[in-house]
Amino acid sequence: MDKMKLRRELIEARTSLSPEQRRANATSIRETLLDQPWVQMAGLVACYWSTGSEPDTHGLVFALWKHGATVILPVHKEDDDLDWAVYDGPDTLARGRSGIMEPIDTRRGVDAIRTAALVIVPALAVDRRTGVRLGRGGGSYDRALARVGPNVPTVALLHEGELLEGIPAEPHDQAVRFAVTPSGLTRLM
């Protein structure tokens, strides 16, 4: 299976989802995550601000923040690595260099993710056997996930049909421990 071809197919399938379906997916994913005790107890959560056809995280980030978690969001650096800054409500975001909303708070450095009790990452698909995620190809989240401790829950958010078998993996590809789709939570490792 060719990664580029698979990415194109998955992005095409995502863009065909109706706005109503995307909203329903986001609600199901958010409720599933917020029902998990290990999510409820996480004091510091690394997440991302969704864009385009990704499963929407805006409500999730807000809910985590309102429930008392400190949420850090990525800030894309020039070298495509991820710096991190604290989300402190919807008015604390500004459009970043790649057009994605980013926190305006002080940058905490690429190693800030090491202190997170929960890490939520984007993915186009995840291999149900290995937990390897297929991203957009820049390697930003693989670098970030490589910094996460071995006992920290790492979670990819997916639409239905994106939990696959046989995703091609390269040595730098990082696995996640869980995937959440609108139909529920899947433990991968």
Rank of each mutant, 00 (worst) to 15 (best):
R7Q: 12
I11S: 07
E12Q: 15
A13R: 15
T15E: 14
L17F: 03
P19Y: 06
R22L: 03
A26C: 06
T27K: 11
T27L: 13
S28M: 08
S28T: 05
I29W: 01
R30P: 11
T32L: 04
L33C: 06
L34K: 06
L34H: 02
Q36L: 15
P37Y: 03
W38H: 13
Q40E: 14
Q40Y: 06
V45I: 12
Y48F: 15
W49L: 04
W49Y: 13
T51S: 09
T51G: 07
S53H: 10
S53D: 12
S53P: 08
E54Y: 06
E54Q: 05
P55Y: 11
H58N: 07
V61M: 03
V61W: 01
F62V: 14
L64P: 02
W65E: 13
G68T: 09
T70E: 15
V75S: 10
V75A: 10
K77F: 09
K77C: 12
K77E: 12
D80M: 11
D80W: 08
D80F: 12
D80P: 01
D80G: 11
D81P: 05
L82D: 08
D83T: 11
W84T: 01
W84S: 06
A85T: 09
V86F: 04
G89F: 05
P90A: 13
D91E: 15
D91A: 13
T92Y: 00
L93Q: 00
R97E: 11
S98H: 15
S98N: 11
G99T: 05
E102H: 03
E102K: 04
P103R: 04
R107V: 12
R108T: 02
D111V: 07
I113L: 02
T115C: 04
A117M: 09
L118Q: 07
V119E: 00
V119N: 01
I120T: 03
I120S: 03
I120E: 04
P122E: 07
A123D: 01
L124F: 00
A125E: 05
D127H: 05
D127G: 00
R128F: 00
T130C: 03
V132H: 15
V132A: 10
L134C: 03
R136W: 14
R136E: 15
G138C: 06
Y141E: 08
A144W: 01
A144E: 02
A144S: 09
L145S: 07
A146D: 14
P150F: 02
P150N: 00
P153A: 06
L157F: 00
H159G: 12
L164Q: 04
P168G: 10
E170V: 12
Q174H: 03
Q174W: 06
A175H: 00
V176D: 01
R177E: 09
R177V: 04
T181D: 05
P182H: 03
P182T: 03
M189F: 02
M189L: 10
